[in-house]
């Protein structure tokens, strides 16, 4: 019993921290989303549903649609690159796994903004990419990719790819190779064995990778800002604008709540499909 109590005491700081810094702000944000923006500055504590109604204005729905489009595009690309990467990485020897893992981690030691500026140098008119392609004779005129939709997609893929790789990798690691051999033994071609056994059994990793990349790619506004200029507005950018430029805190809160609900919906779908309670690859 005594041990129980001391264990509980040890957990107290954790609970306090979670309450103050996670649950508290969430509750505050939720309440805020039902309040009214003051005429001049700040918030009036007056219940209203207007903030949520506001979201249904075409311009904001447009933003959600655009966010979804970008998220879907980058998630598809990330899946196409990340799944094979994680799959083959799991097949390597232990030494090579470690080396590759290190290579995947190294970029994180640099601030993500700085890395994004790197992409600016690559993409800008007459930048590294244009010069390279022109030198190779692939193109005649600069592509001027910076501040275009493709540039934002590349930035998203770059920023989120490793989540997919790690999720798929950890799923493939756990895969019992003898199952694939059994499938081959029972008459399945390598492709058939992949689709009937490998893909099915690594589905939790793949789905978790999709969630881990889809959700952030709707909110990573700074990527859209830096690589897309002002042309591409994501839900994340919208929230930021409403909060910092328009000073409409209740509306920003309502947008954030909707985004969070969508996220929760996706995770609960994941749980329903895979029957697992943890996201694969997230420790």
């Amino acid at each position: 019993m005594k041990q129980r109590r001391s264990l509980w005491l040890m957990l107290v700081p954790l609970y306090v921290f979670t309450l103050v810094f996670v649950a508290g702000p969430l509750v505050y944000m939720f309440i805020l989303s039902f309040e009214t923006r003051a005429e001049t500055w700040g918030v009036v504590q007056e219940f209203t549903l207007d903030n949520y109604k506001n979201i249904f204005q075409p311009v904001y729905l447009q933003t959600f649609a655009e966010s979804f489009r970008l998220a879907i595009t980058s998630t598809i690309l990330i899946t196409l690159i990340g799944y094979p990467f994680g799959y083959f990485m799991a097949k390597l020897s232990d030494a090579w796994k470690k080396r590759l893992m290190l290579l995947l981690m190294i970029p994180f030691w640099t601030n993500s903004l700085i890395r994004l500026y790197g992409w600016m140098i690559v993409f800008r008119a007459n930048g590294v990419l244009d010069k390279l392609l022109m030198a190779l004779g692939v193109i005649d005129t600069p592509l001027k990719l910076l501040y275009t939709y493709p540039a934002v997609v590349v930035g998203m893929v770059y920023a989120l790819l490793q989540f997919m790789i790690l999720a798929v990798y950890s799923s493939c690691e756990k895969l019992d190779r003898s199952l694939i051999e059994a499938a081959r033994d029972l008459g399945a071609s390598p492709a058939k064995a992949f689709f009937t056994v490998t893909l099915k059994l690594t589905m939790p990793g793949l789905l978790s990778g999709i969630i881990l990349t889809f959700i952030p790619s709707m909110g990573l506004f700074f990527i859209a800002d830096i690589l897309g200029g002002n042309k591409i507005v994501l839900v994340g950018s919208l929230i930021q604008d409403q909060l910092l430029k328009a000073h409409n805190q209740p509306f920003a809160a309502a947008l954030a709540v909707v985004l969070m609900l969508l996220t929760t919906l996706m995770i609960s779908l994941y749980k329903r499909v895979t029957h697992s309670s943890e996201l694969e690859g997230l420790l």
């Binding site: 019992d176 003898s178 051999e181 059994a182 033994d185 099915k200 059994l201």
Partner: peptide, 13 residues
């Protein structure tokens, strides 16, 4: 030729 694997290798899904 078919094999009965040592670990059975039944498809868990």
């Amino acid at each position: 030729v078919n094999t009965v694997f040592q670990s059975y290798a039944l498809f868990p899904h």
